[in-house]
Design a protein around this nucleic acid. Structure first.
Length: 347
DNA sequence: AATGAATACAACCGCAGCTCT
DNA sequence: CAGAGCTGCGGTTGTATTCAT
């Protein structure tokens, strides 16, 4: 008698638990809530899970609980009681069976397609290039799946735009480009994509990297911040005139495509340089610079670009010497000569 | 030649804005 | 109207390469 009562109580508890669990999920709010959960960056990196994997994990839990609950119901209910329950929860059961089947299909697909991260291989590059050549870009998530790439759409998009795109201009940043970057950054700040629009073939990522590595390096050497007056003045009085000189020298020694605008520079006198800077900052001249690039970029290969880069002065590393930094204070004395009407460096 | 530091840049992440359902 | 998905942007990180000792 006591044993029967205990068994009944156990059944009752099991049923109560199952029903409570089922009812608690009738509105299924956790499906959305769990998806929104965000772990710390370190945690994600440590576990090595993708965002998709994080979405899948709680679904497994749902499935487990559902199967466990159904098993419990079947083991504790008579057929007639089971029929009542099925009838009572038919809408809910229908909803969950549908959800679970969808989840299982999605999960199996994604688990088979284990997502890759890190550097792209040559094969992956070829797959992406071939697919875009045949089907075009856009819709990157579906593109990644259709192309058979085990990458996120985001990763595919980034690889294409920053590296594989045929019109991406490789090679060193030329003095002309440096000048343009300095000027445009002074106008717009860290608007890399906007700046990149004025440097054909250069990506926002490349310009951002250039700024962070090489430009900020000089700020570091001066023991100042990039946005400080000291650095702004250095750029203004040292860097830009040197760049202008480089461009001018290169254009006079060779028929550089930039010669059309750089010939207007005469950095021998500060006022002339300032005038050139004024010209350069105007949209018309900037467009001329852009045209110069676009005219030469499409026709030139990597070697030609590198050659041009070397011819025009190469990297900016040699723009400054230690003596230049030492003489910085003296150069600032010329400040009054730089007050050009209508021109605002606005660093 | 070995090795640690510095550099360059490819790739990732989070977020915001937009569109579609 | 809310939510999901997509895209683009800017900040940050990981790692291969180069340089200095």
């Amino acid at each position: 008698m006591a044993a029967t009562k205990m068994r009944c109580d156990a059944r009752s508890v099991a049923k109560t638990n199952c029903v409570a669990w089922l009812e608690s999920r009738l509105d299924a709010p956790h499906l959305t809530r769990r998806r929104r959960e965000k772990g710390s960056r370190e945690e994600k990196r440590r576990v090595g899970m993708t965002r998709l994997a994080r979405q899948i994990t709680p679904n497994r839990s749902i499935l487990f609980h559902l199967i466990a609950s159904i098993t419990l119901l079947l083991s504790h209910l008579s057929l007639s009681r089971l029929y009542i329950y099925i009838h009572q929860y038919k809408f809910f059961i229908s909803y969950y069976l549908k959800s679970v089947s969808t989840l299982l299909i999605k999960q199996s697909k994604e688990e088979i397609m284990e997502l890759r991260r890190g550097p792209w291989t040559v094969d992956e590059d070829l797959m992406l290039i071939n697919y875009i050549a045949n089907h075009g870009g856009g819709q990157w998530n579906s593109l990644a799946r259709s192309a058979g790439l085990k990458r996120t759409g985001k990763s595919c998009r980034l690889r294409w735009l920053n590296y594989l795109r045929p019109d991406v201009r490789r090679g060193n940043i030329t003095p002309q480009e440096q000048l343009l970057i300095l000027e445009l950054h002074s106008l717009w700040g860290n608007k890399w994509s906007k700046i990149a629009q004025h440097l054909p073939g250069r990506t926002d990522n490349e310009i951002k990297n250039y700024w962070r590595t090489r430009v900020q390096k000089h700020a570091k050497q001066l023991n100042c911040e990039v946005n400080s007056k000291k650095f702004r003045d250095t750029v203004r009085y040292l860097w830009i005139p040197r760049l202008v000189e480089r461009i001018r020298a290169a254009s006079s020694s060779a028929s550089c495509p930039i010669a059309t605008f750089s010939s207007s520079y005469n950095s021998a006198t500060v006022t002339a340089t300032a005038a050139a800077a004024t010209r350069f900052s105007s949209p018309t001249v900037s467009e001329c610079v852009t045209d110069c690039y676009s005219g030469s970029t499409s026709a030139q290969g990597d070697d030609a670009i590198r050659e041009e880069s070397i011819m025009c002065g190469g990297l900016d590393e040699s723009i400054f010497s230690q003596r230049d930094y030492d003489n910085y204070a003296g150069l600032v004395e010329c400040n009054n000569l730089w007050s050009v009407e209508g021109y605002n460096w606005n660093f």
